[in-house]
Design a protein around this nucleic acid. Sequence first.
DNA 1: GGTTGTGAACAAATTCACAGCG
DNA 2: CGCTGTGAATTTGTTCACAACC
Lengths: 256, 256
Amino acid sequence: MDNGRIPEATVARLPGYLQVLRQAADAGAQTVSSLTLAKASGVNAAIVRKDLSHLGSHGIRGVGYHVGDLVEVISGTLGLTGDRAVVIVGIGNLGRALACYDGFGQRGFRIAALVDHDSRKVGEKIGGVEVEPMTALHRIVTDREVTIGVIATPTTAAQQVADALVGAGVSSILNFAAAHLTVPEAVTVRRVDLSTELQILSFYEQVRVGGSLAESSPAPPLAPRTGGASGAGVTPASTQPEDLAPVAAVRLGRRG
Amino acid sequence: MDNGRIPEATVARLPGYLQVLRQAADAGAQTVSSLTLAKASGVNAAIVRKDLSHLGSHGIRGVGYHVGDLVEVISGTLGLTGDRAVVIVGIGNLGRALACYDGFGQRGFRIAALVDHDSRKVGEKIGGVEVEPMTALHRIVTDREVTIGVIATPTTAAQQVADALVGAGVSSILNFAAAHLTVPEAVTVRRVDLSTELQILSFYEQVRVGGSLAESSPAPPLAPRTGGASGAGVTPASTQPEDLAPVAAVRLGRRG
DNA sequence: GGTTGTGAACAAATTCACAGCG
DNA sequence: CGCTGTGAATTTGTTCACAACC
């Protein structure tokens, strides 16, 4: 009912609903119930209903939601109307993978340019798009109306690239480098980091094998305070070059 | 103080602290204050203190936290002691990028195997590791003590691969496919999806350009309920092949 | 009957503010 | 005096349960 403000948690779930709805549509479904949508998305049915109610959704009591309508409403809410041009900066392994990534263009996100600092990479063609130099960034963003910048550079270059992207005029940044970027408040940044994800998995794995901790010993299986300085098992490592992945769906150890 | 249960939100932030701490250590810092850590991680100082207090941390009042100690405590909490073997299933563009990804091994995550269904890819070497057939999965996981499986296959194969991984004995899965996986409750899944991330960015971008909505028109700039069925601007698309990216740090439109 | 939409209860996370200690 | 650790207040998010409705 209220279009005033959509909670962040709700926004984060909308793309998931959209994906399920598209599959349902392909399967020929006319309507879906909140329960169906919930199961397929891995969330609670009440959450689905509350989320959709924030979009002023038009479910039909006793029936469910009209699939086509819902796809339109969610797409509209997310601003997925028309194309959105994306520029990828940093053509290493990750940048290349992103450039080739098919699903990229499938939701209206078009790779308008690939950019790299390294002049040896300039001119190379990846997935039909040519790599251009960093110096062309401003013109690219302006001329091709790019709104989203993807940072796939080493960590050390990330802030510099972010500054360049902001200067060039993008309004959103997807950051794959393991660095926290400082940007003007008018720019939205999302970070995705593979190391982070693996480390979180590692935690939950440890919790499981350790059974329910907080049982006998009050401290984790590491010396509590040996007072020592440098790390023992883990290599110190300075900064890491490229990074990937964190966020979405989780299934913790508990709960069915 | 309480080792009983570490909140999920805290766990999600720990890898970020670790990264900042390692940089600080490299820069020669002996101690860090919660404020320093907070700024570098993009969070509030009170949160840092509360998070660290959950690890039974040993900060020094009036001084801060000892960098070396903190690295050990956080590493220990996350279970980053010793190596963890990872198997990557699906050697497409994404799988290849992940296999080459340097930062992967830097935190004790070792790529123990690459697996693909396609016999033409079997035998190929990527980053020094040879691609093996799916049929070898069980033996690989058992023999090489693999605990984490990474799914980098097309969406359609994701559930099947997940079942195979679970059957082979992994306890954690990092899923890059755009599908919600059903697994036994003893297995932890995290999903990372590039499309999701872009769509969320798209939403916040739209909110910004639209200014503060909930102003004049009560509905988004899309026809509220035209009753029509098929989408107009966005291509329907069935299922997408490979996926990437969501989770971590965000800077919304508001807040400085 | 079945399902939505939502108020109210509950739980989790964040932020404030300050006592307590080095 | 500065900074940690934490109780209390606040905000945000989830779940329950049921009336309203098709």
